[in-house]
Design a protein around this nucleic acid. Structure first.
Lengths: 249, 249
DNA sequence: AACGGAACTTGATCCGGATCAAGTTCCGCC
DNA sequence: GGCGGAACTTGATCCGGATCAAGTTCCGTT
């Protein structure tokens, strides 16, 4: 994987009262998001195997909570993970989905800034932060890697904001489908269908509408033959043109 | 200022079809957002003065458009700037506000990834990208600066997404007021009132509601004595408790 | 294979905010 | 200082999606 790394401290997907304070403090491991553009090479994987351990989480299991001591960084081998910010009212703001090869475990002052939960059964490399950090300190391309990762996460956050800014529920869903499609294409698999690895509730929480609205939108798209479901989790785009048009309505 | 810098390529506040592609390409100057936690020191300012020129933009004037050749990076001296993504339908997605000391002029492949417009009359340092980049290459703390900036922008994007995710218009407005307040406190001035340097339309475009709704929300807050207007542009928070409560409703 | 609960779908009602439409205030400009 | 247009406020109507409420399908368990 593209090493995560080194000193950092930032992020925190929610707006929490003193968000603009110093966000960057000395050593603490970092990460949060994917970096599909730069897949992990064999050498990196080998090095990683030396210090990482493979761990599994069942669907719905919490990987870490906000505030937990951030002693590890994770790299997804299979499955999908969702990150969120617990809300004071009890709900949660679903800030992102992470897929195979994505790095996550964003820390700030040694504590995780968001919570992560397995959206499906998940297998990950669990990487002790300390040794990774030490190793990275000697890596001259470190900055590049970190910056790479930050750029990716920044882009992801901006896309998320963009999706949330759309007023029509269909627009949000269409954009979401396109995001998933792109993510899956980038991940290598270039199947004609999109795999919805997360629940309707999760989709709704991410795009900012109710689960019922998600269901209704998908039905509408199906009725209009813009999309076809093989089963509840596999969609095929039939009319890309129309899908795109609904994107900006 | 915290140098912007070096090689990068990322961002693009909109969701544009191939958002997950390689996002990091060789040299091109970067920036976009603020870094209030690390104010510009005297030395940096002095160095900056050597290569930068001071430029003024009248309210509503376009500073650069998306796609323009990114030969400059900007640092705000006074006034406020708004960045946006033009939408295919004709509208625009207002992705952020920038205040004094903020750096902006995000580039990717040598072209700006968003458009910037003066929200008020603005004075900026206009910094030629090439020399800045050259200078930064010799700066050992470069990575830190860049990472710092990226972290800040990432946080900003996540806060924006969070604001957009709120369903009640009042919640959005209250969060927005808090954001402005924090930004202004961080900027040094610690006045009892918040200065709304942007139009109601801009606020609406940023938080995802209509200008009319912005007006109605502010009126409601005023009627409930949670807030008081000195004039259309200056608000004072009377009941911080209540404001915060409305934040998560 | 049958049970039971969770996720999902579908329907009906309600409400907040978009939209349309006047006013009103403000501000730059002559 | 007065003119004119833009920004803002306020009001009335309409509509999309939240919410509540059943069903229905799916899936893990036994």
């Amino acid at each position: 994987m593209r090493p995560a790394t080194m000193t950092s401290r930032h992020n925190g997907q929610s707006y929490d009262k003193q968000p603009l304070g110093p966000m960057f403090i000395a050593p603490s491991i970092w990460s949060a998001g994917a970096n599909p553009g730069h897949p992990l090479n064999a050498e990196d994987r080998a090095k990683l195997a030396l210090i990482a351990t493979i761990t599994r989480f069942g669907k719905g299991e919490t990987i870490y909570k906000k505030g937990d001591k951030a002693a590890f960084v994770y790299n997804i081998i299979s499955g999908t993970v969702k990150t969120y910010q617990p809300l004071p009212e009890g709900g949660r703001f679903l800030s992102g989905f992470l897929f195979p090869n994505d790095l996550f475990g964003l820390a700030e002052d040694g504590a995780f800034v968001n919570a992560a939960e397995a959206a499906t059964d998940v297998t990950v490399y669990k990487i002790p932060a300390a040794p990774l950090e030490a190793r990275l300190r000697h890596n001259p391309t470190l900055d590049f890697q970190v910056i790479c990762k930050l750029c990716h996460d920044l882009r992801a956050a901006q896309r998320h904001a963009f999706v949330l800014s759309r007023h029509r529920a269909v627009s949000k869903i269409c954009l979401f489908l396109q995001m998933l499609e792109v993510a899956q294409e980038t991940a290598g698999n270039m199947p004609k269908q999109i795999y919805l690895s997360m629940s309707r509730s999760d989709i709704g929480a991410y795009v900012g509408i109710s689960p019922e609205a998600v269901s209704r939108c998908l039905r509408k798209l199906t009725d209009q033959k813009i999309v076809r479901f093989k089963d509840r989790r596999h969609v095929e785009v039939l009319d890309r043109q129309a899908l795109e048009a609904l994107t900006s309505e």
